[in-house]
Simulated assay, not measured.
Amino acid sequence: MTGEPDDLVLEHLRAIRGQTGRMADMMHTMSVETTAIRQHLAGVVTIQEHDHGGIAGIKARLDRIETRLDLVD
């Protein structure tokens, strides 16, 4: 009878170890996915900054055209 509680404790410890291993795998997967999301977001921000620069250039040209044609209020 004294063997049963020890076996029960070992059984629980093995189950806990298995769950901990699965959780570690899930955390690693989440870390990789988070890194991929950050890299993608950085690319989106870079494109957005490039677009803002292009729009600012177009606005400056439009302002010059309006000034030359005396269309400025």
Rank of each mutant, 00 (worst) to 15 (best):
G43A: 00
G21V: 00
A15W: 06
V9Y: 03
V44N: 00
Q48G: 12
T34Y: 09
A42G: 04
R22K: 11
S31L: 04
L41V: 05
P5G: 03
A42V: 11
E66H: 10
T46D: 09
T46Y: 12
A56R: 07
I58K: 06
M30N: 15
G21E: 00
D70S: 15
G57W: 08
T2D: 11
L41R: 09
M26V: 14
H50N: 07
V45Q: 04
G43K: 02
Q19G: 14
L10C: 15
T35G: 07
L10H: 09
R68I: 14
Q19D: 11
I58R: 11
H40R: 15
D51C: 14
I58Y: 05
G43C: 02
D51A: 12
Q19T: 12
M1Q: 08
V72G: 02
E49D: 01
E49Y: 05
T46Q: 11
D6Q: 14
G53N: 00
M1T: 00
P5I: 02
A42S: 15
I55T: 07
A42M: 12
S31T: 12
V44F: 07
T34I: 10
V45I: 13
T67G: 01
A42E: 10
E4T: 08
R17M: 02
Q39D: 11
E11H: 04
D51G: 05
T67Q: 13
A56Q: 05
Q19E: 12
R17V: 13
G21K: 03
H12D: 15
S31D: 13
K59R: 14
I37S: 14
